[in-house]
């Protein structure tokens, strides 16, 4: 493979956990800092870049592929906030076809169209659908397409479960040139024990936290306006959180191969936290004591 142009970063996480919001805000912050950024939504829902391009229509790569016509980069990309080049992989309608194969075909097509040679990005962010359910969804972290992956997770068990699955995929592919893990983006953080759950998880899996993103009304409001927080509320504290996160990701070279927990281990770990939370919620012990 030719030398990579720019840093290619895959961002994974359970569905609905805030991947697209986080990725778009990171892209916007990087663009604001003067970098050339491409964001590729690898999700059949094709809504990853909505807030970067004000919800405007953008034909997906696979829509164009389906038409069978010759595809040009300008047909499937649009510049959004701060000049971020927005691309949506797209996919079949729910319940039909193979979305995993779609992502594979889409990424291959972008390479064939010399996207990176043409645009010369500093950063390429791949916003990838939910759990790594099959080989197709592992494409961005396989075959050297990206060299680093981040996972967005809340303190919910299922979100961490999805993160653990991604760790398994990284663990499998990293030895043969796949991406390594840059860290966990702790999203939707609320006061109390939520940070500690994620922190305990990263410690157990030999990974680290890339940043904490608190649950905030600013995010919700900006999304309703079809914008990122960076664009809609540039002076808010939330915007700074994303700027710091972007800065960390831009500079972080501390990449690791995680040690995912086994099924029984994960279950045991979750159960232990279940007991601790019960004690906290029922006032048996204080948060500090429980942790």
């Amino acid at each position: 493979m030719a030398e990579k142009i720019g840093k290619h970063i895959a961002i994974y996480g359970k569905g609905g956990i805030g991947k697209s919001t986080t990725t778009s805000n990171i892209s916007a912050a990087l663009a604001e800092a003067g970098y050339k950024v491409i964001q590729i939504g690898c999700d059949p829902k094709s809504d990853s870049t909505n807030t970067l391009r004000g919800n405007n229509y953008l034909p997906t790569v696979l829509d164009s592929l389906r038409e069978g016509n010759k595809i040009h980069l300008e047909d499937i990309s649009v510049k959004g906030f701060g000049g971020v080049l927005c691309i949506e992989s797209g996919g079949p309608v729910p319940g039909v076809g193979c979305a995993g194969r779609g992502i594979n075909a889409s990424v291959s097509l972008l390479q064939e169209l010399h996207l990176f040679e043409e645009f010369k990005p500093d950063f390429v962010l791949y916003d990838v659908l939910g759990d790594v359910v099959c080989g197709g969804f592992a494409v961005p972290i396989r075959d050297g397409i990206t060299d680093r992956a981040y996972v967005v997770s809340s303190s919910d068990f299922m979100a961490l479960y999805a993160a653990n699955n991604l760790f398994k995929a990284i663990n499998k592919y990293a030895p043969t040139g796949g991406a390594k893990l840059g860290g966990v983006i702790a999203n939707s953080m609320k006061p109390g024990y939520h940070r500690e759950i994620v922190e305990d998880f990263v410690e157990k899996t030999g990974t680290s936290i890339a940043g904490y993103v608190n649950r905030s009304i600013d995010v919700q409001q900006s999304e309703l306006y079809g914008k990122t927080v960076i664009e809609a509320k540039p002076k808010s504290a939330q915007a700074d959180i994303y700027r710091n996160l972007a800065k960390y990701i831009a500079g972080n070279e501390d990449l690791v191969v995680p040690n995912p927990l086994g099924a029984a281990e994960l279950k045991e770990w979750a159960r232990d936290w279940g007991d601790r939370i019960y004690d906290i919620e029922n006032g048996v012990v204080s948060v500090a004591e429980a942790i």
Partner: peptide
């Protein structure tokens, strides 16, 4: 062909 795999071949 590939498009039938991605979008379904029914």
């Amino acid at each position: 062909q590939e498009r039938h795999v991605i979008f379904g071949g029914a």
